[in-house]
Every structure is written in structure tokens, then in C-alpha cells.
Simulated scan of single mutants.
Amino acid sequence: MPDLPLYWDQAKTQLMKNDQILRKIILRYEDGPLPSVSPFVTLVRAILAQQASRKTAHAQWLNFSDQYGLQPEPENIAILSAGSLQEIGLPLRKAEYIIGVSQHFAQGQIDIDRLDGLDNEQVIKALCKIRGIGRWTAEMFLIFNLRRADVLPLDDAALLKAISMHYFSGEPVSRFEAREVAQAWAPWCTVATWHLWRSLNAVAVHY
């Protein structure tokens, strides 16, 4: 069984019942793993993915992980300069964000147990207080680390593209229209989103 949340199968069953378009998409792709990585790594990878192509973000992550490991300790990154991360191919602004996030972890300012006890909007509000983390990044954290079942990242360009392609014949889609479509997905928006991502790229998405 792939590394997936316990709710996954139940969510797929309900989504296929409620949405015939999504049913076809879900049946087309086998479940890929949703790997469990550290909260710090999830945020690093999400920061690298901000306003970047998947190829670019992946290349930057490979550079970072080759230098500091697949599961780097925040304390080891917190002492670095932004310039040292620039030297391995990271943009200056993202290098600054990653070091700032690592310092929050190193100083105990990000409490995962506390975050896990909050609802989705409270988690987003808490994380968005940190420089470099916006709503989209916080939503990726909800999906890939806290594994929340009902996250709808309407700022995600790939999700909007997939909704446009499958529900609007490729016509541009607004966030309002996307939210209207997604009403049929609650409370399993995370699983719907993941499969719509898969419909654009056969490789499973994870941060």
C-alpha cells in the first residue's frame, strides 16, 4: 500500500460518486506515494516551488539536498549565509526565506504539535506570519505534511489549469468558478486536487 493518508480510499470512493469527471481521472492513475518528510523539508520544497516551474524547483531541490542531505536539520541551515545557498543555484530571495524558516525551527518558534491542533485557516494564519510563507506555501504544508483532507489551493496555477481543461474546455477559469466546481469535492478537496495535478503530470506531486 502506498504511503497515503488513512482517509484516501474513502475520499476516492466519495469523489467518484459525486463527480463523474473526477471519476475518470481517478480511475486513470494508480495511487502514488505521498512521502512523509520533515516539516522543515516540506516548507523548503514549497518555497523553492513558489512561482517556479516544476523542473526548476526540482533542480534547485536536488542542488540543495546534494549539499545538505535529503532530511537536513534546520539548525545546520540556520547558520548559513544566503550567499552560500546562492552558490548552489538558489535565488537570493528564496535563500533568505529558507534560512529564515530554518531559524524559526532552530529557535523553537514553529511548534508542529501546536499547528496540528489548529484548523486549516488557523495553520495558514500562523505560518503566514513567517517571511517567505504565503497562503499557497501554507496550503502545501497542510496537504503534504499535516495531511489534511480538505485543502483547496485556489492560488495554485496547476490546479486552475486542470479545472480549466477538464471542466471548462480549456477556457480560463476564475477562482470563483473553481470554487463552485469544488463544492462537489468537500470534504476531500486534497484528494481531488492531487488527482487533478496527476492529470497534468503522470509523476506524483509531493513536497
Rank of each mutant, 00 (worst) to 15 (best):
S53C: 09
S53K: 06
K55Q: 11
K55M: 07
T56V: 14
T56K: 09
T56M: 08
A57E: 09
A57D: 08
H58K: 08
H58G: 04
A59G: 06
A59Q: 09
Q60Y: 09
W61M: 04
W61V: 04
L62H: 11
L62W: 08
N63Q: 10
F64Y: 05
S65T: 09
D66V: 05
D66K: 10
D66F: 07
D66N: 13
D66L: 10
Q67R: 13
Q67F: 06
Y68T: 06
Y68C: 06
Y68D: 01
Y68I: 07
G69H: 07
G69Y: 05
L70E: 12
L70K: 09
Q71C: 07
Q71N: 10
P72Y: 00
P72E: 05
P72I: 10
P72M: 06
P72V: 10
E73M: 11
E73L: 13
P74N: 03
E75P: 10
N76F: 11
N76M: 14
N76K: 14
N76V: 12
N76A: 14
I79M: 10
I79D: 08
I79Y: 06
I79E: 11
I79R: 12
L80R: 07
L80C: 08
A82K: 04
A82P: 06
S84E: 13
I88F: 04
G89M: 06
G89F: 07
L90C: 03
L90F: 03
L90S: 02
L90R: 00
L90H: 01
L92P: 04
L92I: 12
R93H: 13
R93D: 08
R93F: 12
K94A: 00
K94W: 01
K94M: 02
E96N: 11
E96C: 07
Y97R: 05
Y97M: 07
I98L: 02
I99M: 05
G100K: 04
V101G: 01
S102P: 14
Q103P: 13
Q103N: 14
Q103R: 15
Q103D: 09
H104M: 12
H104P: 05
F105H: 07
A106R: 09
A106F: 05
A106W: 05
A106I: 12
A106C: 12
G108N: 11
Q109S: 14
I110E: 01
I110W: 02
I110R: 01
I112M: 07
R114P: 13
L115C: 10
L115Q: 12
D116G: 13
D116C: 09
D116E: 10
G117Y: 12
G117M: 12
L118W: 15
L118T: 13
D119R: 13
D119E: 15
N120L: 13
E121R: 15
E121S: 15
E121A: 14
E121W: 14
E121L: 15
Q122Y: 13
Q122V: 10
Q122W: 12
Q122D: 15
V123T: 04
V123S: 00
I124N: 00
A126P: 14
A126R: 15
L127F: 03
K129H: 15
I130G: 03
I130V: 13
I130N: 02
R131Q: 14
R131L: 04
R131F: 01
G132W: 00
I133R: 02
I133Y: 01
I133F: 03
G134N: 02
G134F: 00
W136G: 03
T137P: 00
T137Q: 03
T137K: 01
T137A: 02
A138F: 03
A138R: 00
E139W: 00
E139H: 02
M140S: 03
M140A: 02
F141Y: 08
